[in-house]
């Protein structure tokens, strides 16, 4: 099981703070994950319709979309950051 966590407008559109999912074996990269999530319902589609702008962290470190997700315990999806 992998823990997915959502922030800001991605959290609002999906309608969940977090969830535990069993990832299909053909979901091997961050890009695959975003594509797979879009098929899970309207909220997901609304949140992830522009996958390019979605930022992703695996085990609390930033990753690129081409990177593998093998071994991830916690994957977070969020919009570009606006702190400071």
């Amino acid at each position: 099981m992998t823990r997915l966590i959502y922030f800001a407008w991605i959290r609002e559109r999906i309608g969940k703070l977090e969830e535990e999912v069993e990832l299909p074996s053909d979901v091997t990269t961050v890009s695959d994950l975003l594509q797979w999530l879009r098929g899970r319902g309207e909220g997901y589609e609304a949140a992830l319709q522009q996958p390019k702008i979605i930022r992703v962290a695996i085990n609390q470190e930033h990753v690129e979309h081409r990177e593998p997700i093998a071994g991830a315990r916690e994957i977070a999806l969020f919009p570009p950051m606006t702190g400071g």
Binding site: F7, A8, W9, A57, H62, A76, F78, P79, P80, M81, T82, G83, G84
Partner: peptide, 28 residues
Amino acid sequence: LMDYLKSRAPFWKKEHRIDGSTGEWVEA
């Protein structure tokens, strides 16, 4: 530190307006 923090630290700002509306998430 500030320049990197702005674009890499995981924080997001949402605006609440004087007119009572919940505004938008601030865009990067």
